[in-house]
């Protein structure tokens, strides 16, 4: 069930969230992010952002994250900084799980998605 509260989080349970369909909204390379990761000691071939959006029309759920392609193994990883969204997950009794718990669940959910398929490779 989607519910838009005054804080404009979309609220639903993880079970409800898991039933939503998502599509990649956009994905792009970002040189500033790559430089930031380099300064953090992460050697990358490229880095950027990826955005997914739920396919429902009303109260569209937005989930976005930063990614990088690692230089050592050329695999694509979620970048430090976590997942950004307009979602607040709640428990079955209706209480908010909180921002941190919501993000951890979204990160866990993302790990099971084949999001790397839509990532651009190089400039």
């Amino acid at each position: 069930m989607l519910a838009l509260a005054p804080d404009q989080f979309i609220r639903m349970s993880f079970s409800e969230f898991s039933q939503l369909s998502f599509k990649q909204h956009m994905a792009w390379l970002d040189d500033d992010l790559q430089e930031e990761l380099r300064l953090l000691g992460i050697e990358t071939l490229c880095a950027g952002f990826c955005e997914w959006a739920s396919t429902n029309k009303a109260s569209q759920v937005s989930v976005g994250w930063a990614w990088f392609r690692s230089q050592p193994d050329q695999l694509i990883y979620l970048a430090p900084g976590g997942v950004q969204s307009n979602l607040m997950l709640r428990c079955t009794t209706g209480y908010d799980l909180g921002v941190r718990c919501t993000e951890e669940l979204l990160t866990s959910w993302l790990a099971g998605q084949d999001w790397q398929r839509g990532i651009p490779f190089m400039h």
């Binding site: 956009m26 937005s62 950004q84 969204s85």
Partner: peptide, 23 residues
């Protein structure tokens, strides 16, 4: 830009997006 939302979050600011990014 989407990157600024991420930077604010990294700084510990309570930030959350309204909706889907647009061009």
């Amino acid at each position: 830009a989407v990157g600024n939302e991420r930077l604010l979050k990294r700084a510990g600011v309570n930030v959350h997006r309204v909706s889907v990014p647009q061009l």
